[in-house]
Design a binder for these strands. Structure first.
Lengths: 148, 148
DNA sequence: TTAGATGCAAACGATTTGCGCGGAA
DNA sequence: TTCCGCGCAAATCGTTTGCATCTAA
């Protein structure tokens, strides 16, 4: 069963409320954006999000990027940098995840492990002068399929 | 003094030899590329590398990107994905480094800590079916200057 | 009514690709 | 002499920005 530190289950409404509380307007693009991210619950690029069948409207790229910027600013989503050209985003508030990525085919798997850096993170927080620290841990390897 | 697991000190000649052994030609662009990476010994983007004073020639972007691709393929350099638009590269063969990055100004600091994921990494290697695994660990926070 | 969102269009910057030439082996 | 690597040029693709219009509050 693993180490899923369960957090409060997220719902669209709760998310939209949080957005509202952060001063954002309850717009259709916002709702679609969050719905996709919530349904998929994995890191996605903006082109992926816009192309998702659940994304019910057509929406200008500019809108999407501005939306992502606002959501990230208000800490509702988080960017994660795999080695792909496009940035990935995921909802905050879920359990922290680490990833295992195939450097050939780019497939992304979620690791079901206890993240071993919490200690270190606290340590850094007190000694570095940085605040609001969080981390990103990815493993890159060659998956069985790509090894031929 | 920290945890610098010292590796064999690298020299341009050793690096060029390694390239040669990998079947690459000893070209001027290759030498400049490696010299910059060696001198700076930090993750750099390709535009940064090409713009470095030590990069003695002018060289077409295409050449640079193809060079990087070859070097990465032969495992002489390694890509690392900070949250910047451009990919960063660094020489392999140095000690493994983890980073602390300011999410506002983007400054990158090298962490002088024992990396706490080696165990986990071995673990994943035996259970995941992935091979040649390596990891990337970055901490993101707000640095003192950006906190105002 | 009004500040915040959106669409449109155009600009940007990193990265990629096809092609013919020049140089390292 | 032979390929490999290079410069040139053009195309891709993710992302950003200015501006006029629209809309949620």
């Amino acid at each position: 069963m693993g180490h899923t530190h369960s957090h409060t289950p997220q719902t669209i409404d709760a998310l939209l409320d949080a957005c509202r509380a952060a001063g954002m307007r309850r717009t259709m693009a916002l709702r679609c954006f969050l719905e996709v991210l919530l349904e998929e619950s994995r890191p996605m690029t903006l082109p992926e999000i816009a192309g998702h069948p659940r994304f019910g409207i057509t929406c200008d790229p500019a809108t999407l990027y501005r939306l992502a910027a606002r959501l990230e600013e208000h800490r509702l989503i988080r960017q994660i940098g795999f080695h792909s050209r496009a940035a990935h985003y995921l909802l905050r508030g879920g359990a922290h995840q680490d990833y295992l990525i195939c450097r050939d085919c780019g497939s992304i798997a979620v690791l079901d492990v206890e993240c071993p850096v919490h200690e270190l993170e606290k340590n850094i927080e007190t000694t570095s002068g940085f605040s609001d620290i969080e981390h990103e841990l990815e493993f890159y390897g060659t998956c069985r399929a790509c090894r031929n």
